[in-house]
């Protein structure tokens, strides 16, 4: 058996050595068009965000963003190749050109932004949380002095954990396990007192892995800011613009009341801003390097941001997440698209 250098990290280093990273000036759009396929990096399986169902079909909020981009460029949400990536593999997979776009509950941070990457707008405002079994009798993170905590490497989670405990002058013991399945197994077997990751991730794990979800609680403390956003390679401005405005279009659509169901009817709407967004008036797409009906296709394919949210992670799903910070700015949330004009 050969030395296992932490999965893809070594591979990625090899990629950097063997491949030529695509040069600038819109190469990603051209490459996607000529391949006729969008290669989208997603999670290996995080319910609500990106996970394959029993037929191998991918669903989730992150997956819907991939689909929207594919609809804009290729007019076909089936022309996507999903590349499941572990926490450690994801950034190098993008840097090395293995994928065109990374939509994998990835936190936007300065260090990552400066690693040859660029971020599109946030699609889910999250924060790090702590999940414990109810039987532990803990109601606040401040009571966790001396706890053993299960955490996945390659995440911002791993980094925030030590900071938070230092700031609160508490001690803890990390158990760092690479594969999410094994990590969850260790936590549910009682090896750790606490499981920590993004609160949305905890909700997903609780809903899908715990035998009795009600036996576990997520503590009230939010330990960090985790703005989850799609990632592209640094320097390909056109590509970043397309991904960014696709997301803005989905947010704008919610604000204007355009849904997957009524988008065709809305083509006849008298509101000029709706007409511009759907390409009835003007030609906003050309500036991006796509055609007039770009936003129409995205909305037609996956619905507006609110629909995507409710379908995948909202109150009617096992994750039961509130809109919270992810409500439209008009409803007191942070979802805000710049003028589409």
């Amino acid at each position: 058996m050969s030395l296992r250098l932490g999965g893809a990290v070594a591979l990625a280093a090899a990629y950097l050595a063997f491949t030529a990273v695509p040069a600038f000036a819109g190469p990603t759009l051209d490459a996607v068009k000529s391949k006729g396929q969008l290669t989208c990096g997603v999670n290996t399986g995080l319910p609500g965000f990106s996970s394959p169902d029993s037929q191998g079909k991918w669903t989730g909020l992150d997956v819907d963003i991939c689909k929207a981009v594919a609809a804009v460029i290729l007019n076909d949400t089936n022309k996507i190749r999903y590349t499941p990536l572990s926490a450690q593999q994801r950034l190098t997979a993008l840097q090395s050109g293995e994928i065109d776009l990374l939509v994998r509950n990835t936190t936007w941070s300065l260090t990552r932004d400066a690693q040859g990457l660029d971020y599109a707008p946030v699609v889910y405002y999250d924060g790090q949380g702590l999940m414990v079994p109810k039987s532990l009798g803990v109601t606040s993170a401040k009571q966790l002095d001396g706890a053993t905590i299960c955490v996945q490497p390659g995440t911002t989670t791993e980094l925030n954990l030590a900071d938070w405990f230092r700031a609160h002058n508490l001690s803890f013991k990390p158990v760092v396990i690479e594969a999410l399945d094994e990590l969850n197994a260790a936590f549910f077997a009682g090896r750790c007192d606490v499981l920590t990751t993004d609160i949305s991730g905890l909700a997903g794990v609780r809903a899908s892995v715990a035998t009795k979800p009600d036996d576990f609680i997520i503590l009230p403390e939010v330990m960090s800011k985790e703005p989850l956003a799609p990632v592209v390679r640094h320097g390909d401005n056109q590509w970043r613009d397309i991904v960014s405005w696709t997301i803005y279009a989905l947010i704008e659509a919610e604000e204007k009341g355009i849904t997957q169901a009524n988008v065709d009817a809305k083509l006849k709407d008298v509101d000029p801003s709706v007409q511009r967004l759907l390409g009835v008036q003007g030609d906003l797409g050309t500036g991006l390097g796509v055609d007039k009906a770009w936003a129409y296709r995205a909305i037609k394919a996956v619905g507006n941001y609110g629909e995507i949210f409710e379908r995948n992670i909202g109150k009617k799903t096992p994750l039961k997440l509130d809109r919270g910070l992810n409500a439209l700015w008009t409803n007191g949330g942070l979802m805000y698209a710049p003028p589409v004009r």
Partner: peptide
């Protein structure tokens, strides 16, 4: 070096965490 699969902090596991924090994969 298979340690990271079951959470033992061997050198590879710690180097991986370092790579994650600093981005210095090579």
């Amino acid at each position: 070096s298979l340690a990271v699969a079951i959470g033992y902090p061997d050198f590879v596991s710690i180097a991986n965490t370092t790579i994650n924090q600093t981005g210095q994969a090579v």
